[in-house]
Amino acid sequence: MEEFTTVSEAAEEGVPAQAEAPVPAVRFENVKYTYDDDEEGTVFAVNGVTLTIRAGEFVAVLGRNGSGKSTLAKLINALLRPTEGKVTVFGLDTADAKKAFEIRKSAGMVFQNPDNQTVASVVEDDVAFGPENIGVPREEIGERITAALEAVGMTEFRHATPSRLSGGQKQRIAIAGVLAIQPKIMILDESTAMLDPKGRREVMDVVKKLNKEQGMTVILITHFMEEALEAERAVVMHRGEVVMDGTPEEIFARADELETYNLTLPRAAYICRRLQEAGMPVGNAFNAEELAEAICASLQKG
């Protein structure tokens, strides 16, 4: 645990004290990206995105499959380099191949398929992979593994085989593998898409805790609207562009607009909206508890 708090402190210390505008964790400046670059009239997976993510922020990126949200994620840690424009991570330009190593050290990424991210047959060896790559001394790797597994609540599985774990547990191991590198940013590229509700809950709880307790910048790519509610900011992607940006509540209040991007409201919000449309004066609600409260309040007033 200790290392992580020091990392986040370091991240804050890294911010120039005199500056009014601190160095953002991630900055996109008019970024375009295309997978087939030599054709005329190409389709841009990411098409002119300008976006700033502050250090310590918890941002959900929403959008349909194929809206460019995964491409956006891969542009952050230099797995992809922009065709046009500029992406910087704590001021480092991802276009500079020499910086890729530094960038990946500060921006870790967890992927979609829990089966395709582990390199080793034992949990601790897998978590060790990242620190080994960046040349962490042996004794420290052990400490990092202990801390990372504790942070994701998987300490007792240190010597287990990943293939025998549940989907949620596998993803928590993948998160631990990233934590052991001690990044400042954690990107989750649809990491909950293949999990059952229990596994999704486990991963979301870990991610929220990292954000709250360690000040980790979290970028959560997802198509589960309910998950976006747990973030402090939501960004909606549509055809490679950022079309909405605000708090999740603000975003979900603009239901008609969301619909044009083929996104749906969280179910509670949807029901709420239908009641409002039918003329019942209920307040906004985003989950079952809030929905029940809003309805009861409205009934009492009525």
Partner: peptide, 18 residues
């Protein structure tokens, strides 16, 4: 296991007398 949003809301409302 969980329940649908509607069932959860209905359960709470019932507790409140609706």
């Amino acid at each position: 296991l969980g329940v649908p949003v509607t069932a959860r809301a209905a359960q709470i409302m019932r507790g409140r007398g609706y």
